[in-house]
Design a protein around this nucleic acid. Structure first.
Length: 568
RNA sequence: CGGGGCGUAGCGUAGCCUGGCUAGCGCGCUUGUUUCGGGUACAAGAGGUCGUGAGUUCAAAUCUCACCGCCCCGACCA
């Protein structure tokens, strides 16, 4: 391709609405343009890079035995009602009505469709296992689209769904996808690593996210350098010890704490109750009923973990009015001592704790000498706290670290939740009818593309890995007059390399060398061949890998050298 | 949805507080000359509903209100 024939609109300055580096580079290199918030057009070079990522994904999915299909973006609302997600996912669903007023959803994902398909097409255990995948546009009405392609209202996702006869089979399918994902991200030039992930409301027992370390990532990952433990902070646990038991004190004692409504205040004079001897009492409302959550005074509640206990993500902190109605006191004086008719979920770290202090459910008063197991009726014990950096690893007890990361892929063992609701059953060898055991596997394709840029750049612009670069080679003749030796040689290299299957862009613009170099660096082509009259006089041209040192070669060696570099 | 900020040419911005007559600058774009190995220099140009609507005023980019859009933080996130 000739530069003047395609469209590469580079920008010297990034538009003001781009905040993070990869978003700025996407715009400055002319890969995408914003149409509206969270909605983007891919320009020619951006699309080429995107197609490279898609192709890698297809090759690895095919290699793992998955079958490509294409499901509609327009989905009838009935199947979403059948799965129950018309309600639970309502906040992200784009809804449209047709001329006859029938309601449709724009696909945010496709469990319902593929499970319906499986219900119709799969009858026998002999047809299983099967794994279907697609690469398609997805729509999610994100509350807040962000950072360009990172969190968009419309984006491209690869989603795959496996169907097995048994749990063991499902685990094998899961493992295949897990391994395929590792290969996919490695081939994209990404340093991505798997972490244990929260299974949320779907529950189940197995889920991993593939994370790309980045300060701008929206996820926090807890990890251990010593043993390799890694988990999303929503899921992570630590080996931190439970609260030390003390000699059991006398009975609970109420004492006045006028105006004290925070852990910090109670820790100061004249009370001097250390935060680790306080019980933090939180009230949430789920399904319009209050629940009480107890964590230690120096711990933070992890709402993702709470969702697992409550069984829905549709819950919220109670308002002060709701709290007063339920407990008869305001935040700051709350406690669970003596509470009988509200469920109490208690963090494991408080198990066995005594000599604790907590609110008395009477404004201005607290209880001390509280022994949890003696004085509080706990509905369920559960790990509910948020892990902090420096705590001991749950596996090897070394200090945990936390870093931010971008989630580019997610593998999930679904079990039979969808197959049961949508009747995806098969007849087993023994003649019994069973629901398929499912797994689902997603890769944010457009997000992966941006993650590559977020990870592969320098002060001059993008540094594409060969595998996803829009063009592998940029030929830069410094004089473009047709009868000039520079241009003649450029044309010759262009045809020879193109004939060898190398993707080449020939910068045939009548621009200053500086402009061409700057643009080529910004656009990030992995290899640039510069052809100038000075070098040519010595019979040489320069090959400049975007990420390495200049290589000067004789003109007749140039093509072979470039082929060597692009075959890596 | 709550909090904060912004909206002036393709991009980046000044002017707004303290209203004043042709809305300024840099980049980019067009034409010419120049330069010719890291965003060249000079000259001449084109390009604007100052987000939209209403209001205040002799006069509004500037003040007021409403709306729309965008960005950030939070909440949310299969």
């Amino acid at each position: 391709m000739r530069w003047t024939q395609t469209l590469i609109s580079t920008l010297r300055e990034a538009p003001a609405d781009a905040e993070i580096l990869s978003h700025k580079l996407l715009l400055r290199a002319g890969l995408i343009r914003k149409l509206a918030g969270g909605v983007y057009t891919f320009l020619p070079t951006g699309l080429r890079a995107l197609r490279k990522v898609e192709q890698i994904i297809r090759e690895e999915m095919d290699r793992a035995g998955a079958l490509e299909v294409l499901m509609p973006a327009l989905q009838p609302k009935e199947i979403w009602e059948q799965s129950g997600r018309a309600e639970t996912a309502r906040d992200v669903l784009f809804k449209v009505k047709d001329a006859s007023n029938r309601e449709w959803f724009l696909s945010p994902t496709a469990e319902e469709v593929i499970t319906t398909t499986a219900a119709n097409e799969i009858n026998s255990y002999r047809q299983l296992p099967k794994n279907f995948y697609q690469v398609s546009v997805k729509f999610r009405d994100e509350i807040r689209p962000r950072f360009g392609l990172m969190r968009a209202k419309e984006f491209i996702m690869k989603d795959a769904y496996s169907f097995d006869t048994t749990d063991e089979g499902a685990m094998a399918s899961y493992k295949k996808m897990y391994d395929a994902y590792a290969r996919i991200f490695a081939r994209c030039g990404l340093k991505a690593f798997p972490v244990e992930a929260d299974t949320g409301v779907i529950g189940g027992n197995y889920s991993h996210e593939f994370m790309v370390p980045a300060e701008t990532g929206e996820n926090e990952v807890v990890f251990c350098e010593a043993c390799g433990y890694a988990a999303n902070v929503e899921k992570a646990t630590s080996g931190i010890p439970r609260t030390a038991a003390r000699d059991i004190g006398p009975a609970v004692e109420k004492f006045a704490t006028p105006g004290v409504v925070t852990i910090e205040a109670l820790a100061k004079e004249p009370y001097k109750v250390a935060p680790n001897r306080q019980i933090k009492t939180l009230v949430y409302v789920g399904d319009s009923k209050p629940v009480i959550v107890l964590v230690r005074g120096d711990d933070q509640l992890n709402e993702a973990k709470l969702a697992g206990v409550i069984g829905t993500t549709i819950f919220r902190p109670a308002t002060p009015e709701e709290i007063f109605a339920a407990l008869g006191a305001h935040p700051g004086s709350l406690g669970a001592v003596g509470v009988k008719d509200i469920p109490v979920y208690c963090d494991e770290r408080l198990r066995g704790a005594n000599d604790m202090t907590t609110g008395a459910n009477e404004d201005g008063f607290h209880f001390r000498y509280v022994s949890i197991e003696r004085d509080i009726v706990v509905t369920q014990w559960k790990d509910l706290r948020t892990v902090a950096a420096g705590e001991p690893c749950p596996k090897c007890a070394k200090a945990l670290k936390i870093r931010r990361a971008i989630e580019v892929g997610h593998v999930f063992k679904l079990g039979t939740k969808y197959s049961e609701k949508l009747n995806a059953t098969f007849l087993d060898a023994d003649g019994s009818r069973k629901p398929c055991v499912m797994g689902c596997y997603g890769i944010g394709v457009t997000r992966t593309l941006q993650a590559v840029i977020e990870q592969c750049n320098d002060k001059d612009g993008i540094v594409w890995p060969l595998s996803v670069a829009p063009y592998q080679v940029c030929i830069t003749p410094l004089n473009i007059a047709a009868d000039n030796q520079c241009m003649k040689l450029a044309e010759q290299f262009y045809s020879e390399l193109t004939a060898k299957g190398v993707e080449v862009i020939l910068d045939d613009r009548d621009e200053r060398p500086g402009v061409k170099f700057k643009d080529a660096d910004l656009a990030g082509f992995p290899i640039r061949i510069s052809i100038g009259e000075k070098s040519l006089a010595k019979g040489e041209v320069e090959i400049k890998p975007r990420s390495g040192a200049m290589i000067v070669v004789r003109t007749d060696e140039a093509v072979a050298k470039v082929l060597e570099l692009t075959e890596a």
